[in-house]
Write a protein that binds this DNA or RNA. Sequence first.
DNA 1: TGTACATCAGTGAACGCGCGTTCACTGATGTAC
DNA 2: TGTACATCAGTGAACGCGCGTTCACTGATGTAC
Lengths: 195, 195
Amino acid sequence: MAAAPRSAASRARILDAASRAFRAHGYAATGIDAIMSAAGMTHGGFYAHFPSKAALLEATLVQLNEPQRSPLFGDIVALSGRRLVAAIIDRYLSRRHRDQPEAGCPLPTLGAELPRVPGNPSEALAAKARHLAALLADHLPGDGATARERAQALVALLVGGIVTARTLPENHAEAWLRSCRRMARTGAGLAQEDG
Amino acid sequence: MAAAPRSAASRARILDAASRAFRAHGYAATGIDAIMSAAGMTHGGFYAHFPSKAALLEATLVQLNEPQRSPLFGDIVALSGRRLVAAIIDRYLSRRHRDQPEAGCPLPTLGAELPRVPGNPSEALAAKARHLAALLADHLPGDGATARERAQALVALLVGGIVTARTLPENHAEAWLRSCRRMARTGAGLAQEDG
DNA sequence: TGTACATCAGTGAACGCGCGTTCACTGATGTAC
DNA sequence: TGTACATCAGTGAACGCGCGTTCACTGATGTAC
């Protein structure tokens, strides 16, 4: 039996605060002090819940990989086929996702930083990319190999669409995202519907 | 007349070292000490050349926006039309670019970090994205509006392809990049040639 | 119900350490005469 | 050609500051009897 958790509620608050802060400001730029403040505590108590900042990062990524926790896709499990694919494209490449990194996918925010952090935390990110590609592949038209290929490129387009849209000023972001959504639908083999 | 530069060669060495280090390790994670060491000097002399670390970042981005300095495209100015587009896609989404961030495009490495840094250094990155999109649009098939749209999404796919491929382990990166290249060619309206 | 004690969760001060920045100084180079 | 001096480029020690981590301590909760 592992040691009993101290306070499950506190641990969950720390984990949630960290998950949002890492996505909003990056891993290195987020201090434990800020995380604990957001969780309503002082920084000293942190080490009763997690052995290190690196372990906290790992825990946030594991949690984000739980399907039911997936930030953007919680309520679209009822869909399937091209309606599912279209919904993922539209939610991922949305203005809301661009503007709220703290509530979005960790790939655009942490994808560039984590491969440089010692201890391979980017493995969890790679798993996220592969899971998303597998989900898309299951619902794309075409045979298996073609669908898998398209799904991989689609993930890249989603991630890159958000990364680039976040560097652009607000008034250019919307048109940019629309262009990305259009290529995503075409690349996915979906019929072009509305803009 | 502005003050005469101290040592143009030293300044250029600092700028080059910083440009590579920022792309390799990110902006915040790169110390002035490391940059000056790479330039063959001690850290104290830095402020004779640049007023601050932020100004150094700005200078590196401006330099990377000079067309003739563009890291990946130096020797393809002779091409045009779909051959140019195909060459950009193949070089950008290459194993070499994935493996050598310090010599590559700043968008995948700094795209997520700079929008969070105070002082809007990401404006220079946005300019990079727009310049690349404009270059592609000039050589894509289709009318102006369509070409511009496709070019924007293409930039997103290029950037996202490298970001995601860098999170993946080496043995999966090659197939992933190939998938991205294929969708990029299709999305650009090019005929599918070899893998 | 009441008392004594053990355990628990969180506090806040303190520790190294590295970073951006400053600055007095050194040695080399250039110029005046 | 030689001397005296000013200027320049880079050195290295020092400064605050913030961060990850540690730890002695406090107050609250639970349990034994």
